[in-house]
């Protein structure tokens, strides 16, 4: 069953004015439960706008977006941002409890479970300022998983980290995802990262159309050193080169 349905979605900033700018142009796709979908594309292709509309932070001009839960209650969303966005005056554990709907034993157990999963089980009583950037981002990931979201939205969560830390976190994210099987929409500009993590890659092109929808059918866990992963990464990159040839605006990006 589809958890996220996007149907004929359009978004125009400043509609009806001289500066009218269409960033999403009749986008339709849906995401089935327990899949990991990446949205990639050059900067300015509308990735962030799409996320903001899905999360309800931004309105759309026309079309439909719906997130459904399987239990009939309102759908719960989880977020991982580019930066950790932790309350500096609360400990790691309190930060994670802050976004829980109820502060009960179950919530506490979930918080502990996911903290252990990201390897920070011993750091629950630390303040964010006492952790490194990579550790803080791991808290951000654990926080999002711990709300048991129907849809987990990740907005370039590793783009502010150094390459080695990011690689470690990608491996960890794969492990957590394999255990929890949450439905994820993962936005990135990094094709290599998208191939390593996703079941499917939606490529947006400048102007806000879907250029291609690529299934990634590789066994998990995937590691970057795996030749099959590398081959597929090269193949997807080659397809994006094609996009550059068709849409000149994209040539400077990707």
């Amino acid at each position: 069953m589809a958890v996220l349905t996007v149907n004929d979605l359009c978004k125009t900033f400043g509609a009806g004015t001289a500066r009218s700018n269409r960033v999403l142009d009749h986008i339709s796709f849906d995401v089935r439960g327990q899949t990991f979908v990446s949205v990639v594309g050059p900067s300015g292709c509308g990735k962030s706008t799409l996320l903001n509309i899905i999360s309800g932070v931004e309105t759309h001009t026309s079309g439909d977006v719906s997130v459904t839960s399987d239990e009939g209650r309102p759908a719960r969303l989880g977020y991982v941002f580019q930066d950790p966005r932790l309350l500096p005056w609360r400990t790691v554990r309190k930060n994670m409890l802050y976004v829980q709907d109820k502060d009960d034993d179950q919530a506490r157990r979930r918080v502990s479970t996911y903290l252990d999963m990201v390897g920070l089980g011993q750091h629950g009583d630390f303040f964010p300022g006492q952790l490194s950037g990579g550790m803080q981002q791991r808290v951000g990931i654990a926080r999002a998983f711990a709300v048991e979201p129907d849809l987990l939205i990740m907005d370039e969560p590793f783009s502010h980290l150094d390459a080695i830390t990011a690689r470690g976190l990608r491996a960890q994210l794969q492990d957590i995802w394999a255990q929890s099987r949450k439905t994820v929409v993962f936005v990135t500009h990094d094709v290599v990262e998208a191939v390593e993590l996703s079941d499917r890659i939606i490529v947006l092109q400048p102007g806000g159309r879907i250029f291609e929808d690529i299934p990634i059918d590789l066994p998990r866990p995937r590691r970057q050193s795996d030749p099959a992963v590398a081959t597929l990464q090269a193949e997807v990159l080659a397809r994006l080169e094609k996009m550059k040839a068709i849409t000149p605006q994209a040539a400077t990006a990707v």
């Binding site: 966005r85 309350l87 802050y98 976004v99």
Partner: peptide, 23 residues
């Protein structure tokens, strides 16, 4: 960004005042 984070996770205005603004 903390306010947006709180809103994204569905926190109420009271919670945001207590946990973000006052501290």
């Amino acid at each position: 960004n903390l306010v947006k984070m709180s809103q994204a996770f569905g926190r109420s205005p009271q919670q945001i005042r207590r946990e973000v603004f006052i501290p």
